[in-house]
Design a binder for these strands. Structure first.
Lengths: 228, 228
DNA sequence: AAAAAATTAGACACACTTGTCTAATTCGTC
DNA sequence: GACGAATTAGACAAGTGTGTCTAATTTTTT
């Protein structure tokens, strides 16, 4: 039933999966724009450049198509989040600048991009009606990312760069702060400019460091090299 | 055509407006649960305890009903927000405790309540398709509330209770912080417990004051009167 | 080139929803 | 009790969307 018996030439496989991708992509766009009830399979098919029957051949019914879309986007989103998490400044040269750059990366590629927007929107519209649809997201998404980020902050605290009591809370607050200025435009579906992303991250990190930065760093920068 | 010629006895008016309220209320619930496309007028009528025809008599078509619902909820939500804003601790006895209590009030009656949830959800689902539907909310809602809150913080800074450069940014960040821990459960439609609200506000205010509290207060409280 | 598989357009049945209409009924007012 | 307005249940037409089916066509493999 799955993609079987197609080992020798991948020409068809390529177009086959290309169509599959195309359908998922179009479905994501339409679901995101119109919601589940408002989404029209004919429109999805047209937008994907395939016939309606092909959509049904690939994914069964509408519910199933939604599941496939959510699974796909969740996976992409999580992968990108962890990739960005890997660029966390564990050994910062300039803590403020490094955290700002990290925040911008995080916002750009995980929160403000099409997939992030799609997931937020869909979780809010369909999350209550269909909770197990997002069980995977819930499990591997925010939970793991938050604690991973908390671990990074804890390490920065241990190495003397930050002064943090509760790393988990600090991680959540860091994420909340870097999105503070973007919430409203994102809700209204506006496209965020480079300047907005920059300003938001800068504001956020400045406040974050006012709260969690080493007090010594502000008054005596030459005595910064302290702990191992 | 409007509600005219009904001055003498308000019995009928009461039931009339009671039905109107009931319809708006039911419609809000159903729109919120199912989205606009998914909402079913028959279901709204049933949930309001009236016949379908009565719904049409009161509000015309579905689009119109949505407008009425949004207008009603927006008004309620804004009114409540400004009411809570009136309880801001302008002359705090215990700044931390007062801000925590204020944050809890704000979350409880403006953000985590049914109306707040409804507005967020609906703005995200219908805001892009129908922006002028939320023009009123946009104009009188967050914009005014944010600047009003910023003015309060500016006053606290002026009176020496806080150390704030940019009151607007501080206000946005305050709001972001007090919601940091509630975002996820709210997205998933979970009911928030008293403990969660409490902990979220406490965490947020602690961080907010670490960032914007008078530095002097921690080390040398007697030299607090500085700036003019 | 032939066989097998996938895709396509179109028709189709079925269900659902919206918004209107009508006739009967309830309700408040006089 | 009688009148008028509002409400109700139900039928109704029109439109829309889903999911299936078929026959023709294209694409891929042998």
């Amino acid at each position: 039933m799955r993609e079987i018996l197609r080992p020798q030439f991948d020409q068809s496989l390529r177009t086959h999966t290309a169509k599959r991708e195309s359908i998922i992509d179009a479905a994501a766009n339409v679901f995101c724009r119109e919601g589940f009830s408002g989404a029209n399979i004919d429109l999805i098919a047209a937008e994907a450049g395939v016939s309606r029957q092909t959509v049904y051949n690939h994914h069964g019914d509408k519910e199933n198509l939604l599941s496939a879309v959510v699974a796909e986007i969740t996976e992409r989103c999580n992968a990108r989040s962890f990739a960005v998490l890997g660029t966390f400044p564990d050994h910062p040269e300039n803590l403020e600048a490094d955290l700002v750059a990290f925040a911008i990366r995080l916002n750009k590629s995980c929160i403000c991009d099409r997939d992030g927007k799609f997931l937020r929107k869909l979780i809010q519209t369909e999350g209550e009606r269909n909770p197990q649809l997002f069980a995977g997201w819930r499990k591997d998404g925010p939970g793991k990312i938050w604690s991973a980020l908390a671990a990074r902050f804890a390490r920065l605290a241990f190495s003397g760069h930050l002064d943090i009591d509760d790393p988990d809370a600090a991680a959540r607050q860091f994420l909340a702060l870097i999105n503070a200025d973007l919430q409203l435009p994102m809700m209204l579906g506006e496209q965020l400019s480079e300047e907005q992303l920059n300003a938001s991250a800068t504001n956020a990190v400045r406040t974050f460091l006012r709260a969690f930065g080493r007090r010594a760093d502000t008054s005596a920068p030459e005595t910064a090299k302290v702990s191992a």
